[in-house]
Design a protein around this nucleic acid. Structure first.
Lengths: 252, 252
DNA sequence: CCAAAAGTGTTTCAGCTACACCCATGA
DNA sequence: TCATGGGTGTAGCTGAAACACTTTTGG
């Protein structure tokens, strides 16, 4: 019997191939298997747990080794251990994590013949029970997005409320009222306004916001004391991409 | 490295020793360790995973072997695998489940020198990281009780709304308005009225209710398809204890 | 009769939703 | 000046909370 750690990694990306689809979607990096069982099938990045390594550390390590990514959010998802799930091979119990990475970090991902991004909504048949795992991770992401402050993990250090709202809209698959979304976000102090604005659109500049690292996210698991200090969540560095940034005074 | 499965088992019990405390509280059965590390300390029931056994099956088996209990609710809690948690012994990764058992089933538990019930709120120092695990399970129980229909797992097949409300009050540690509680429970069809009433108190008889097995509980994990059919939840048999039961017509 | 819990009705308040409207910018 | 999104105001609905009140039993 073997113990492995795997990770479902989500990022928002545009479809570079088909021009039909518009706007970013949820994608995840997968690794192709090069031996039986499931030779040639896509599988979640992962690997065996090392002797002196924590579970989350193993997730972060295997994830970095295969994709080169450093996630902004990492949380344990579930342990899978049905005896049949190995598919005729030696039995494997997998402790699965799920991770979120920002768009800029995702663009830096090391892809190639063995590693590729696939759209979460239209996956082929994956190796083992990995389709079930991805579906569960998607469900967890959507459920948690409605009550926890995790959307910023898909974005850079600062972001406009529109950008934050679009993350919610893509993940939850429905439009949100901009006015009400603004008020909800401003209500809890999870996100704080900066003095900077995003200009460049042919419209009024939008204020940039920053994630409030003082307020901490909702449960990351038992290892983070319930009302507590930061650990896993580690904001991705970098600023804006195709927009300029200007500093202005906030209204008196 | 070793893989084990343990379970945090909750039941509502009266304190039989100290007459000072009144009303039931959350208790859990623990097992005393008979060798190092933590020789003599209390620990969660559990054991190694067998080769051809699912994770939940292992939890149910070890739980039954040590305590004789058959839980009404069983769900995976978390996987614990920090390298240091073994305390100088061989490293152990534990996949921990949490379970609820009804009061009658709890009374049938096999206790003795090695197995004993302890009050969840005033535990001694347990073996390994088991205090942390129990605290997390307690937090999960309380969180889930507020939105999921799991309270009936502490009760028999039929119950009055007062009994159901008292379960909530004990777990959530606050009083609930009987009128509002009634309406909330009746609003979702999770619980259905029977034609029977609990008599014997010096007051108006209370209608007995039954859990609606057609409506299914909120997420039990990835293995239960999201809106789906029963699996783990297996209602404990048996009826009322110290009260008579009478059959009456419901009002026209 | 009284005490006690079962069960019903009603008012109030907070939060969410929908949507009208003004503001600031680039072209 | 117009189109576009940024940002504000507000009326209406819904559900939770608080609490007054009626009903039915045992003593």
């Amino acid at each position: 019997m073997q113990l492995a750690v795997s990770t479902v990694i989500f990022a928002l990306r545009e479809d570079e191939q088909s021009a039909r689809r518009r706007g970013p979607e949820l994608w995840l990096p997968l690794v192709v298997r090069v031996r039986d069982p499931y030779d040639g099938h896509w599988a979640l990045p992962g690997g065996p747990l090392r002797e002196d390594e924590g579970l989350a550390d193993a997730a972060a390590r295997t994830l970095a080794e295969t994709t080169g990514l450093r996630p902004a959010y990492l949380e344990q998802l579930y342990a899978f251990g049905a005896p049949e799930r190995g598919g005729a091979a030696e039995r494997v119990v997998s402790i699965v994590y799920w991770a979120l990475v920002g768009s800029e970090e995702a663009a830096r991902a090391r892809v190639g013949q063995n590693v590729r991004w696939l759209a979460a909504e239209r996956l082929p048949r994956l190796a083992f029970d990995h389709n079930l795992i991805v579906d569960y991770a998607l469900w967890r992401l959507r459920t948690k997005m409605t009550y926890a402050r995790i959307a910023h993990a898909f974005l850079g250090e600062t972001f406009t409320l529109r950008e934050l709202r679009e993350v919610h809209e893509i993940v939850l698959q429905r439009d949100l009222d901009p006015a009400n979304f603004r008020r909800q976000v401003e209500a809890d102090a999870a996100v704080v306004p900066t003095d900077e604005f995003r200009t460049g659109g042919r419209h009024r500049p939008a204020r940039l916001y920053r994630y409030n690292t003082a307020i901490e996210p909702v449960d990351l698991g038992p290892l983070t004391p319930r009302p507590a200090a930061p650990t896993h969540t580690d904001a991705a560095p970098g600023g804006a991409a195709q927009h300029r940034t200007s500093k202005q005074r906030s209204r008196p």
